[in-house]
């Protein structure tokens, strides 16, 4: 990812240190990063400025990550199909099923190593290493 405009990622997580951790990894890999602290704020930001990739937590105030993806995916707008990487502490099989049903493209269990995050980001943004 060295040429052209950097791809944009929206990190959606209520924990400030987690956002910082993802931002750190993604910026070093050449992405431009914006943050939202819950699903509603993410929806609002996407209406103003679409991105190339979403990194989404599950448990968040006001709107959880699954509800966010469900609402996003049924919008009648181009943003509806932005790829999404869900990162969560919930590792059970019903959680994976819920993530798939909500429209997640990948599901990673926290803590996510920074290099793993950037590999998946690359895959979903179509510029695999």
């Amino acid at each position: 990812m060295t040429e052209g405009k950097p791809k944009r990622v929206l990190v959606v997580d209520d924990a400030a240190l987690v956002r910082l951790y993802y931002r750190d990894a993604l910026e070093r890999a050449g992405y431009a990063v914006d943050e939202a602290m819950n699903g509603l704020e993410a929806l609002e930001k996407l209406l103003v400025a679409p991105v190339d990739l979403l990194v989404v937590d599950v448990n968040m105030p006001q709107m959880d990550g699954f509800t966010f993806l469900r609402v996003l995916r049924r919008q009648d707008l181009p943003v509806a199909s932005i790829p999404a990487l869900v990162t969560t502490t919930e590792a059970g099989p019903q959680d994976r099923a819920a993530a798939r049903e909500a429209g997640a493209n990948f599901y990673l269990v926290k803590p996510v190593p920074q290099d793993v995050l950037t590999v998946y980001a690359g895959l979903l943004c179509g510029d695999a290493p």
């Binding site: 448990n59 968040m60 105030p61 006001q62 709107m63 959880d64 699954f66 509800t67 019903q94």
Partner: peptide, 15 residues
């Protein structure tokens, strides 16, 4: 709750 939406609402109410 299994439903993440209800969990989020519960937490917001407890806060």
């Amino acid at each position: 709750a299994d439903d993440a939406n209800l969990r989020a609402g519960t937490l917001d109410a407890l806060r």
